[in-house]
Amino acid sequence: MQTFGQLASSPSAASGSRLEQLAAALPKFETRGMNFFYGTHQALFDISLKVPQKSVTALIGPSGCGKSTYLRTLNRMNDIIEHTRVMGPVLLDGKEIYSPDVDVVSLRKRVGMVFQKSTPFPKSIFDNVAYGPRIHGNRNRQSLVEIVEKCLRQAALWEEVKDRLKDSAMALSGGQQQRLCIARALATSPEVLLMDEPASALDPASTSRVEDLIIELKQNYTIIIVTHNMQQAARISEWTAFFCQGRLVEFGLTKQLFTNPVQKETEDYITGRFG
């Protein structure tokens, strides 16, 4: 049986088998024995992972282990770095995203991304959120207004900015800027949201707002989030993948991985962080 590779189908995962089977039946993303290279430097080794649909999957692991690299292979963001190579299948809904006939633009429209550092464009708040729909051909003012309001509401920012949509986004606070970036990513109505440490530069209040937002969004989106914060991973994710030195060490239900890890490395990492 080929479910989550040997690691995830190991004994400890048995108790959560119902959920797991469900998720395994409907993986949103799947990589099979994927390797990744920056030039000659191999950053990822033989990653086999099925990311379940409409749930939050956390990627954890020590710095430099390849979490961001893995995340960026999923929307082909690594393409813009020169001399990078992906080897092995990366499937979105069962379709290879690196095959020549795939249009990167429409892939990235389906797979949105939020970065660690908030990256508002030096434009108005409205234009920031409307950016995505506009480049994808939406010219209808009324529909843009609706999209902007909807996404700002989803990102829990609407009440704070509804009276100053015309103001520059650069004038928002760091936490507001990050929520704006989330709203901007939602505006292209993606199916998947990749988040690379989205709350690492935020204060506790903003962090918890972003976390609430993620929990809310998982009803409709598949979310993959990189985080260094164990409590955060435990709070918001159903699934957790633990990376170490470019390898996927363990993948499973967050509850199990945190309380009863199979691998010694996982346990060391988690307890090290907690204790």
Binding site: M77, G112, H136, C181
Partner: peptide, 17 residues
């Protein structure tokens, strides 16, 4: 900043966009 360009690409921009 490079991050600004990346944010643009991540939203599905072409290079020209």
């Amino acid at each position: 900043p490079r991050t600004l360009r990346e944010a643009g690409y991540a939203l599905g921009s072409t290079k020209f966009d």
